[in-house]
Amino acid sequence: MRTDKRTSTQRLLLAGRLAATGLVAATLGLTAALPAQAAAPTGVVLADRATTVDAAKRLVTARIDGRLAVLRANGVAINNAARLSDGHQAALKAILDQAVTGLTELKAKVAGETTLEALKADARSMVEDYRVYILVQKQVHLTLAADVETAAVARLRTAYDKLGKAIAAAKAAGKDVGDAEAKLADMKAQLDKAEAAVSGVADALLAVKPGPDAEAIKAQTQAARGKVRDGRTALKAAIADAKAIRDLVKDKAAKSK
């Protein structure tokens, strides 16, 4: 009898610790969805199966809601993005709509589940069939970033043409243009580099589909992020060149007055 009491107390303490440390998901057999969390003793889990199923439902539902909130925020972001191309906007909208519809249906399915096994499958589907965090979130913001870079390159090319004409005019008038021509050549090289870096990045990223291989997805999003960062570095260099040329042109204009 005394042994039974101790066992009950130990169970309660263990259950409390598990709840307190957020390991409920692991005890519910959701370790596939949360690989970093350790599994709990099976005996604890089976103590109150009905309560456990309800807790699992709440957990999975909360995780679905978190993903739906991110998807909606991303929907607002793409609607407000002035520089997003029409094609990319349509592709992203289709991805978001599909994920919202699927996860909303999954949420309803979770509400009707009666077993931990079914909930475990739902949790896996929530992660692997949508990949909201490691894929969709990246698709949205890296595509937005790539299109901003494309817009910046176009604007800088216009500035490049004008600065080139100003340098040529100053040179034709017999003025010393310093290293403006070298800066202009570097500006063009940096713009070509930025354009090459960002070219096709968004389209390739938007073609990535969710699936069970998280590492493969991460490799693709990291590659895209690296290219967008390369484009940003080249853009910064081109802008620095434009500023230097602008200063030279201003200086010549002031001296000619």
Binding site: A152, R155, L156, T158, A159, K162, L163, K165, A166, A168, A169, A170, L235, I239, A242, K243, I245, R246, V249, K250, K252, A253, S256
Partner: peptide, 18 residues
């Protein structure tokens, strides 16, 4: 036509946008 002052002013606008 490439008026240096006008080009510099336009470049200022472009750089601000950039």
């Amino acid at each position: 036509a490439a008026d240096p002052a006008a080009v510099a002013a336009q470049t200022d606008t472009d750089l601000s946008e950039l």
